[in-house]
Write a protein that binds this DNA or RNA. Sequence first.
DNA 1: GTTAAAAAATGATATTTGTCATATAAATGT
DNA 2: ACATTTATATGACAAATATCATTTTTTAAC
Lengths: 228, 228
Amino acid sequence: MSKCEQCIVREFSSLKALTKDELLKISDCKTTHVIKKGDVIFEEGENVNGIYCIKDGICKLTKLSANGKDHIVKLVSKGELLGQRSMISEEPVNLSAVALEDMHVCFIPKTEVMGFFDKNNQFSMNVMKSICGDLKDADDHMVNIAQKTVKERLAEVLLYLHDTFGKNEDNSLKVQLSRDELASMIGTATESCIRLLSDFNKLELIELTGKKIVLKDINKLKKISRTV
Amino acid sequence: MSKCEQCIVREFSSLKALTKDELLKISDCKTTHVIKKGDVIFEEGENVNGIYCIKDGICKLTKLSANGKDHIVKLVSKGELLGQRSMISEEPVNLSAVALEDMHVCFIPKTEVMGFFDKNNQFSMNVMKSICGDLKDADDHMVNIAQKTVKERLAEVLLYLHDTFGKNEDNSLKVQLSRDELASMIGTATESCIRLLSDFNKLELIELTGKKIVLKDINKLKKISRTV
DNA sequence: GTTAAAAAATGATATTTGTCATATAAATGT
DNA sequence: ACATTTATATGACAAATATCATTTTTTAAC
């Protein structure tokens, strides 16, 4: 069993506040999981009795909407924790988590984590800050969807993917989403998303090669997205 | 100076976890404010060095979007706290707060509140839970805006206002928003909002008398909103 | 490798929503 | 009480976006 104490990923999450002793306790009770691309980590409505720490890979958090379509609320990657909100609220998870690539995750049972809240104030503060960050992002996101056009949102999402997850050697975006997934991040119909990508391609703002997307004119994309 | 210990409103917020001693400390350092309808409590980007406890009245939390329009993110009323996220994140507030009616609020300085996080775990948990609730609401809201039509969203907001803030003796919604504000809750143009209200009126789902709105057919509104 | 299935792309069209112009009504200040 | 501003309402039209149909391309299965 791998030791949490030696896990670098921990440094990026709220867990960085834990002491050596606390980490040893986690090492003992955590379970490690290999998750294949497309696999479901948990599903909306489930009781997830603990949190997942992402060691490697990226997943999407989705929510089923009234019309039966999934909406991607957030992408989560290495170093981040899943299931914090649900654990604190003592409610089922409100989002589903699905792997976008092969992942390594560790599961830490609720009982263990809740103990840290009492004893380790820095840990509590870290968790609070991370949830506060999510809340701020959600507010921003909400206003974007409400007030920006689909084109603006597409440009913004492309820039977000670029800035957050980086690019491969061939300059293409590291996170490869299907058109359908891209559409469900933006909140639009798949066809509309495809059409706009084609437009961006023709305008030489991006370059499409199969599923690969290369951002060719970041400044113009920024202008379109009105991020600047 | 009014005493926090005797304030009923406290029972509805995270502050209910505070001890008598802690409440006495707050009573000493808090400031009370009367806020007129339309007054700004704080503005996006400001440093609010503490939290506001709403004793009476309702306010809107808005965020300026890229196109210069305000979007109403949330309505907040009696018993709720303002400025928690900002305080915990140690960042300026990301939303503006504007009174929708005359309000009474108390301001508790950050220095005081932060002390409670260390010493009173129940208080910390309450704050966390309340922020987690906000996050869940924000996710729901986001997906609604992304996937529902304006008509569905209008029906939903009307029902929300009805269920959350109740009605007057004449059955009209207690919270009176302008068409403009209603539109900015829904994320649509004012004219579109007005038009749909007229439609609902003609279909006898609601009754419009000046600014007053009476919900006449809640079941049909629920069907339209796809809340059921 | 061939076939079946899924994803992406595109056209045609319908629907929704926004914008601009203008009219009417209500609120406000003097 | 009047004028002035502001909010509400409505029509006409334009733009954005969704939907449906169809084709092409890619991926996966055998």
